[in-house]
């Protein structure tokens, strides 16, 4: 992973999903079980996390591009700050990568 400080200031942050098949997402009710095959860890997550993971599986995206995919495919709307917070959490859980 490239440290953020090495990135030119005009290049926006982008995110990459885990390799296809690295995680299993199982809808339970309002929550989803998520199994990470790489770590063996299980998480319980709520929307918009499964939607973010699915939208990011299309390919590397900046937060703006991701927001557009979410609004197009999942009718997920929200402010940029909330999406950034979710992305930070997913990076911390090792479920997505910050480039």
């Amino acid at each position: 992973m490239t440290p953020p400080t090495d990135r030119p200031s005009d290049t926006p942050v982008s995110y990459r999903a885990a390799a296809p098949g690295a995680t299993i997402v199982t809808p339970l009710d309002s929550l989803y079980a998520l199994y990470d095959r790489r770590s063996g860890l299980t998480q319980l997550v709520a929307q918009p996390v499964p939607a973010i993971l699915s939208a990011l599986a299309e390919g590397v995206a900046t937060p703006g591009e991701l927001q557009a995919r979410l609004e197009r495919d999942f009718a997920v709307e929200g402010e940029a700050g909330a999406l950034a917070a979710r992305l930070d959490e997913l990076v911390a859980l090792g479920l997505i990568e910050r480039l």
């Binding site: 339970l28 009710d29 309002s30 929550l31 079980a33 299980t42 319980l44």
Partner: peptide, 16 residues
């Protein structure tokens, strides 16, 4: 709810 049930059963299992 299934999610609460799932979470509690992971805790009720010793080899999950």
């Amino acid at each position: 709810q299934k999610s609460e049930n799932f979470m509690r059963l992971t805790q009720a299992s010793t080899n999950y």
